[in-house]
Amino acid sequence: MKEDHRDSLEFDFSGIRPEEAIISTKDLHAWFHNNLVLKGISLSIARGKVTAIIGPSGCGKSTFIRTLNRMHELVPGARLRGHVFFDGQDIYSPGVNPIMVRRKIGMVFQKPNPFPMMSIKQNVVSGFLLQGIRTDQIDEKVEYYLRLAALWDEVKDDLGKPASSLSGGQQQRLCIARALAIEPSVLLMDEPCSALDPIATAKIEDLIHSLRGRYTIVIVTHNMQQAARVADYTAFFYLGKVIEYNRTEILFKNPAKSHTEDYITGRFG
C-alpha cells in the first residue's frame, strides 16, 4: 500500500546512503542580492549515477547546480549560506580555492559555448591551457575525449577547423569533451539540450548513458521526458525548495506529493 506523504515535510525518498553520496548539500541557501532563490536545500547526489533536477522556470534548479562547483558566486550580488560536501569536504570552508573545486566538478552550459578563437582540437585541450598545465600526447588526448563525447567520427578530419563551424549539437558535444578532458569526477549539465533539435538531443542523451558509472552527472532539465529517459534519481524543485527526491521511475510513476504529481502531469509549470 502506498504511503501518503502529501502533507508530510519529508521530501527525500531516494534512499541514498551517506557512503553512496559523492556530493551532499546541507541547508543550502542562495541569494541574488536580496532575492532568496534557494531556501535550505539538503540533498545527496549518488556517486556514478545520473541525477536530474526538474521544476518550473525560476525554481532555483540552475542556481542549485551552480552552487555545487562554486560558479554561483561569479554572478555579481550572489550570496550563499550552508554547506556543500564533496567527498566529505565542505567546498565552502575558508581554505578551499574555488578553482580547485571546478577542476573536480566540471560543467556544461545551456548554450553551447566553445571558444571561438580556438580550433576544435584546441577547444578539447583548452582546460590544460587555461589551467597553465603543459601536457603531452595532445593528439591522443584529443582523440580519446572526442571519442568519449561521441564526436570523433564527425570531426576527425576537421580538427583544425574553428569550433564555430560545427552544428549546435556538435558544439555541445565538443563542450562536453572539453569538460571531460580535465578529468572531473562530477559533470554538471545546465539544460544542455535546450538549444538543440531532437536528433542532437538524442545524441547527448546517449552520451549521458555511456558516461554513467564513470562520472557522476547532475543534469538540470525542463524536459520531464528527458529526466525520465536519462536519470537514475530525480529531484523536483519548486520555489527554491526540494519538493520530492526519489528514484526516477518512482517519482514519475508514483509521486509521493500532490505537487509533484501536478507538475509531471502538466497541470502547472
Binding site: N69, M71, L74, I99, M100, R102, R103, G106, M107, F109, K111, N113, P114, F115, P116, M117, S126, G127, L129, L130, Q131, G132, C175, R178, A179, I182
Partner: peptide
C-alpha cells in the same frame, strides 16, 4: 560574452588565465 568567461572558469582557470587566454584575445 559572459558565457565564454564562465566556460573558462568552469574549466578551472584562475582570473588571470581567463583574462589572458579568453578575454584579451577576444
Amino acid at each position: 560574452p559572459l558565457e565564454l568567461r564562465e566556460a573558462a572558469y568552469a574549466l578551472g582557470a584562475d582570473k588571470w588565465m581567463v583574462i589572458r587566454k579568453v578575454v584579451l584575445p577576444l
